[in-house]
Design a binder for these strands. Structure first.
Length: 821
RNA sequence: GCCCAGGUGGUGAAAUUGGUAAACACGCAAGCUUCAGGAGCUUGUGGAAGCAAUUCCUUGGAGGUUCAAAUCCUCUCCUGGGCACCA
């Protein structure tokens, strides 16, 4: 009898699988259906952590099951290799970002092997390889060609001392991470992708996706479609001859227009400098704007209670509904990036406006009454008075104090008021999205250079496709230079010839957001070595049809950005006739987050990081795989409990023991029903990614098996088959080495269950009195109510409850009987 | 402040989706085995009372619907995650 030695057999099988190319997916396999199975490719941060294991191992179980179901499974892997940490390492420790990245990848490749995952390494994709980023640049050119890439001034975090642009991550408490200087917002010229052009489709196509509902909801909220209206407020002018000026606001509550008692502009609103000469308290206003510039957007929004603002004294606007002159304020609770950057404030019917009005003593005028309080059909009498309002009434109701619209419902008034003003040219309907265009410019070194040349004569000129890739130059200093990317330090890189006129010109020095690289990588896996195209159409048709990736598994932290950007890219490529599908990931699931043993997020500084390598050494990769999945629901994650792992190892030891040392029983197994039940349970649970209950049911099966006097071969074989996706090395060793089978267990068909054989003939029925269970009765399946009642009347323990006779009897076949006394 | 998850034994959790609450595992206790063990095996293990049969209580809290609620509804309190005060 041999002893289960995971270290030895795991290394052996990892090597054999690699040599045999067992997991290399074939393009266009004729005898099998394809299954494109994808995990989010990792960032090469240095070490593979337990969270990667959790993600990859869960997904791997599902993939292996598909393989055993006879699919041509492609389960590729690669690295999302551009990004800030490489640059930080370079700056701090003087290592070239490339050296740092490639050495991390090498480490992680080795660690990935030890997970026993069936990744097809022959398709590996690395986003910082010029062979890959050539096509990222090509994607940029496609965007540019289609009018979806454009340049404009956009704010960036700016450290005045270091003269550099900072990522949000590098801003700590509003200060520069490196030098502690207060960070300000600075407008610089940057590149954006027009994702807003796809807002409607990104929203409506969510419907056809098999994704978790919460994720869809989050994307919906992120896109944030709202129907409303643009309303124009005329700026009151002393001088009659001045051309008419208007401030436009966006509102979804045109019904409250008569209650608009002031206007608020975002501090960055263009109108402010335009009105400069008329503002009496200009120095106060300027000071406020300067202060606002110091705050990041997040900070502006996280200040809950103390909304601040300044009135633009000397400026008034006219409420187009009732002709009243109302004041204009600026406040940073209004964002320049949403809508028109200006709002009409209706303090009686909006919480934020209410708070602001209370703070600054502004007029609160109630114009909507709850329908239940509305008494006078003509609305001349207000039932609640604004002064008495203790909070804003934000729901729909009936209009009051709104002249000819009194008595009209909010819903109707929204339409009618806009129509009424539209005739005068003062309003129009508008669909507004929260979604903003995607800012892809980064003033950094370690990213894909944007393939653009700035020519004095021709303007912005794209690099010719035949000149791709524009390779990253060698530089010595990776710090951004005066607001420009470190690429600006390389004369050789910057100076180029204009592709149009051939004269001296300068290259764009910004690099692209790394999300651009990861927005199309799943296409590349279909044809990773193609030098002529990002992927061949035939390959794309084969792997991506009919609904994109068949299963995508990754963290919930990507519910918005990565997933939305990938969907956007796919739609653009689809429109250009370059993708066979307009959605990349037909089915997607998230795994949960593994927390440290203390219930906190794992981090090196907290010292609660779990090292998978150590666990593998002590218990074997198969046990680590199984334990991770046994801990709880896959989508939940949770704190790591270092003690539980021995339970799984014990289980594997026991399976090993009976598999290598069993006495064959020739008669039929007593466990036929349980065997069929277990196959059903494990099969269905893997499909649903409910790994923990699948493992529990295998444990129950083994427990029963061990209670038998002798064990039947079919039961042991079944458990090895069921175990194979979870503990692949273990199952392969028993299947091929111990039992001397000729081919891999992963080429064997998956066990099937007989639906007729999953029902026990004898069942137990719960006997309840007034809903309380007082006992159980054993009976044959399908037993009738009268038979049960008869049994109870003869049962010593139960019959006493029946004294007085039941008023009512509820009988659920094969489950319970409940007597209401 | 808003949005999304989630609260079940000492711990991770399960519950056929409204029908026996606590499967499976960890831990703990006792016993066996071992030179010894942080190894293995057996048994027990939600709480309270009782020698026991048994009884009562129990799914964050308070109400409600129902013959029957961990599951559905209302309110409320915590915990985790996300966020862009979106007009």
């Amino acid at each position: 009898m041999s002893i289960y030695n995971p270290k030895e057999i795991e290394q052996k099988w990892q090597k054999r699988w690699k040599e045999d190319g067992l997991y290399e997916a074939k393009d266009f396999a004729k005898d099998k259906k394809k299954f494109y199975h994808l995990v989010m490719f990792p960032y090469p941060s240095g070490d593979l952590h337990i969270g990667h294991w959790y993600n990859f191992v869960g997904a791997d179980v599902a993939a292996r099951k598909k393989m055993r179901d006879g699919f041509n499974v492609m389960s590729p892997i690669g690295f999302d290799a551009f990004g800030l940490p490489a640059e930080n390492a370079a700056i701090k420790r003087g290592i070239h970002p490339k050296t740092w990245t490639y050495s991390n990848m090498e480490t992680m490749r080795g660690q990935l092997r030890t997970t026993g995952t069936m990744f097809d390494w022959s398709r590996e994709v690395v986003t910082c390889d010029p062979e890959y980023y050539k096509w990222t640049q090509w994607m940029f050119l496609k965007m540019y060609e289609r009018g979806l890439a454009y340049r404009k001034k956009a704010p960036a975090n700016w450290c005045p001392k270091d003269q550099t642009v900072l990522a949000n991550e590098q801003v700590v408490d509003g200060k520069c991470e490196r030098c502690g200087t207060e960070v300000v917002q600075k407008e610089i010229n940057q590149w954006l992708f027009k994702i807003t052009e796809y807002a409607d489709r990104l929203l409506s196509d969510l419907e056809k996706l098999d994704w978790p509902e919460q994720t869809k909801t989050m994307q919906k909220n992120w896109i944030g479609r709202s129907e409303g209206a643009i309303i124009k407020f005329k700026v009151k002018s002393e001088k009659l001859k001045v051309k008419e000026e208007f401030i436009e606001v966006f509102t979804t509550r045109a019904d409250t227009l008569f209650g608009a008692t002031y206007l608020v502009l975002a501090p960055e609103h263009a109108m402010i400098s335009h009105l400069k000469s008329r503002i009496l308290n200009l120095s106060d206003v300027k000071e406020y704007i300067e202060n606002a510039k110091r705050k990041t957007e997040l900070e502006r929004l996280s200040e809950d209670k103390d909304k601040t603002g300044v009135e633009l004294k000397g400026v008034k606007v006219v409420n187009p509904a009732n002709g009243e002159e109302i004041p204009v304020w600026i406040s940073d609770y209004v964002l320049g990036s949403y809508g028109t950057g200006a709002i009409m404030a209706v303090p009686a019917h909006d919480e934020r406006d209410y708070d602001f009005a209370k703070r600054y003593g502004l007029q609160i005028k109630e114009v909507i009454i709850p329908a239940s309080h509305y008494a006078d059909p003509r609305g001349t009498e207000t039932q609640i008075h604004a002064e008495l309002l203790s909070e804003a009434f934000i729901e729909d109701g009936i209009l009051t104090d709104s002249e000819k619209f009194n008595g009209v419902t909010s819903e109707k008034a929204r339409e009618e008021i806009v129509k009424w003003l539209e005739v005068k040219g003062l309003a129009k309907k508008k669909v507004q999205y929260k979604l903003r265009d995607w800012l892809i410019s980064r003033q950094r070194y370690w990213g894909v250079p944007i393939p653009i040349i700035h020519c004095e004569h021709c303007g912005i000129v794209p690099v010719k496709e035949s000149d791709l890739p524009v390779e990253l130059p060698e530089v010595e200093n990776y710090l951004p230079k005066e607001g420009q990317s470190p690429l600006a330090r390389s004369e050789e890189f910057v100076n180029a010839k204009c592709p149009q006129c051939g004269q001296n010109a300068k290259r764009e020095t910004d690099t692209m957001d790394t999300f651009v690289c990861s927005s199309w990588y799943f296409f590349r896996y279909a044809d990773p070595k193609n030098e002529k195209e990002f992927a061949n159409k035939k390959n794309l048709d084969y792997w991506m049809k009919p609904a994109g990736v068949d299963l995508y598994v990754g963290g919930a932290e990507h519910t918005v950005l990565h997933l939305l950007y990938s969907r956007f890219f796919t739609k653009v490529l689809y429109d250009a006739g370059l993708s066979p599908v307009d959605e990349p990931f037909g089915k997607m699931r998230h795994q949960g987050i593994i927390l440290g043993p203390d219930g906190q997020k794992m981090s090196k500084s907290k010292g609660n990081v779990v090292d998978p390598d150590e666990l593998v050494r002590d218990f074997g990769a198969d046990a680590v795989r199984m334990y991770l999945l046994f801990m709880g629901p896959y989508e939940l994650g949770g704190p790591w409990n270092p003690r539980g792992l021995v339970g799984i190892r014990r289980f594997l030891d026991r399976v090993w023991k009976i598999s290598t040392n069993y006495k064959l029983q020739t008669t039929n197994s007593n466990l036929e029903i349980l065997r069929n039940k277990t196959i059903k349970k494990v099969t269905e649970d893997i499909e649903d990614l409910k790994f923990h209950t699948a493992i529990a049911s295998m444990m129950e099966y083994l427990n029963e098996m061990e209670k038998q006097e002798s064990i039947n071969k079919i039961d042991i074989e079944t458990i090895i088959h069921l175990l194979s996706p979870f503990a692949p090395h273990f199952a392969e060793e028993i299947w091929q080495e111990i039992w001397k089978n000729k081919q891999s267990v992963f080429k064997e068909p998956w066990p099937v269950f007989d639906p007729k054989k999953i029902q026990e003939e004898n069942i137990s029925i719960a006997v309840q009195f007034n809903g309380k269970t007082r006992g159980m009765l054993n009976a044959a399946r399908g037993v009738s109510q009268s038979e049960i009642e008869d049994l109870i009347s003869r049962d010593e323990k139960l019959k006493k409850y029946l004294i007085g006779g039941p008023k009512k009897v509820i009988f659920i076949k094969d489950k319970l009987v409940n007597f209401v006394i």
